[in-house]
Write a protein that binds this DNA or RNA. Sequence first.
DNA 1: GTCATTTGACCTTG
DNA 2: CAAGGTCAAATGAC
Length: 293
Amino acid sequence: MGSLSFDNFHARKRNAMVKLVKGKEIAVQLQTLLREPVQDRGPVSAEKLAFQIYRSFSDSLSELSSCTSDQIPAADGAASYGDSGSKKKRVVKDRRGCYKRRTSDSWEKISPSMEDNYAWRKYGQKTIFGADYPRSYFRCTHKKEGCKALKQVQRIKGDEVMYQTTYLNHHTCNETLRAPPLVLDSDPIDPNLISFQTSNPSEQDKHGQFCINSTKKPLVVSSVKREECVSEDVSNEAKSTLEDPWHDITGLEYEPVWAPYQDEVESTTLHGLDMEVDQLCDIQNFKYFDQMY
DNA sequence: GTCATTTGACCTTG
DNA sequence: CAAGGTCAAATGAC
């Protein structure tokens, strides 16, 4: 099994930090841009800057993700199987029990429902040490077609029924829309919003959030009031899908129109982002696993 | 008969 | 060796 060298790890960490700092600088540009009147924006668009921020974060996250993925055994597993001669005789073809721990291509969500509009087949359940409830293991129903998507669902201890779902691998089947490619510490109420948290939770509800339009464009940036994410001609049915946190990133037909509220951009908006980037510099606490597109 | 779920064994990782 | 991820036979539902 390959392990990451100390130097290599720190090189990647340094690269990630450089990219995060770059993203921070672009965010400042975006902040400046959004403060200017619309007609004075010049050749640089807010969307372009937002996309650069997105790319910067994406690249840095990839760097960090690769720090752990190097420790993952090769997909064919042949090498790791053949090395331990002291154990029982094994047939390389037999992959029973072979597993990968959390890969670079995984992400989590917490929601009151296990449903996510994909067809899953349960293949195991396990009692987890220290947990009140067993963990269930699911794979995509279309595994035969080569879809490698997996998920683990565990009920969280507490008064309310909440489930922590860990997804591994993206769907390659055509079952429905793809699972969300990007989930930072997402808003459990509306995961389309990536919160660059402000210190004021109530403020966070209204400002300083990136809106991911998952259906077509990868990213639309604006300061958005949540309630304004619904355009006027949206049906009640479509509105109800927005109220379901995961519906529109997993199987939504309706494509929401995100209404920008430039006038509402305040210093807290990107100040919150500043804080988050600073926090990200503490990579040890960086809770993120997904390999983004 | 087909497909999904359950469950204990098997296996890897740390 | 403990914990956790996966497999596959047994079982159930339709």
